Amino acid sequence: MTPAFLSLSRREALRADLPHVADLLHRRRAGEIDEAVIDDMVSLAWLEWLGGSLQLTTVGTNICRQQQPK
């Protein structure tokens, strides 16, 4: 699914879930992330597959930083 077809509410839900996903990736627990979430975040360029591993992109990292308390 391309980003243009994701509803605003779905994007907001994904944005809210991204820090948790990032934490799971950091702890090497990507298997606990729902496949639909992975697919949608990859389509938004927040996650990418690199050498068989799932990781945050620069965009995903920046979105996580935006959500941190100031």
Rank of each mutant, 00 (worst) to 15 (best):
H26D: 14
W46H: 03
L24Y: 04
E48V: 03
E48S: 04
R11G: 04
R28N: 15
W46D: 02
W46Q: 06
D40R: 15
L54P: 07
D40L: 10
W49Q: 11
G31M: 09
A13Y: 07
G60W: 00
T58P: 06
A45M: 07
V42Q: 12
E12Y: 14
L18V: 02
T61W: 02
A16V: 05
P3E: 07
C64D: 03
L47F: 00
I63V: 14
A22C: 02
A45S: 12
E12F: 13
G52W: 00
L14R: 10
A4W: 04
V42C: 11
T61F: 01
R65M: 04
V59Q: 12
D39T: 13
Q68F: 05
V37R: 11
L25D: 08
Q55N: 10
D17N: 13
E32P: 10
Q67W: 00
R29A: 04
R27P: 07
A30L: 12
V59C: 09
P69S: 13
R28K: 15
A4P: 07
V59R: 12
E32S: 13
I33A: 08
R28A: 14
R27N: 11
V37A: 14
I33Q: 10
W46V: 01
R15S: 09
A16C: 04
G60D: 01
R28T: 14
I63Q: 13
L44F: 01
S53Q: 12
P19M: 06
D17Q: 14
V42E: 11
A30M: 12
R27C: 07
W49H: 09
A30T: 12
P69C: 09
N62S: 11
A30I: 09
R11W: 02
W46R: 06
K70R: 15
E12D: 15
E35R: 14
V59Y: 05
A45W: 03
G60N: 05
I33S: 08
P3C: 05
F5T: 06
A36M: 14
S9E: 15
L18M: 05
S7R: 15
A30R: 10
A45E: 12
S53E: 13
N62G: 08
H20W: 11
N62T: 06
A4R: 12
T61N: 09
Q68Y: 02
L44Y: 01
T61M: 08
L18T: 04
R10C: 06
L54M: 03
S53I: 02
F5Y: 12
Q55V: 06
F5L: 13
L24Q: 12
T2E: 15
V21L: 01
E32V: 09
V42M: 10
R15V: 09
S7M: 08
L18H: 04
L18D: 06
L14M: 07
S7C: 07
W49K: 09
T2M: 15
Q67K: 04
L14Y: 02
E12W: 14
D17V: 09
C64V: 07
R27T: 08
E35A: 11
P3G: 02
V42Y: 05
S43N: 07
W46S: 04
M41S: 01
A36K: 14
L44Q: 06
T61S: 11
D34E: 14
E12G: 15
A16W: 03
T57P: 02
S7A: 12
R65Q: 06
A4T: 11
V37G: 08
E12V: 15
L18F: 00
M1A: 13
T2R: 13
L14C: 06
D34W: 00
L24I: 05
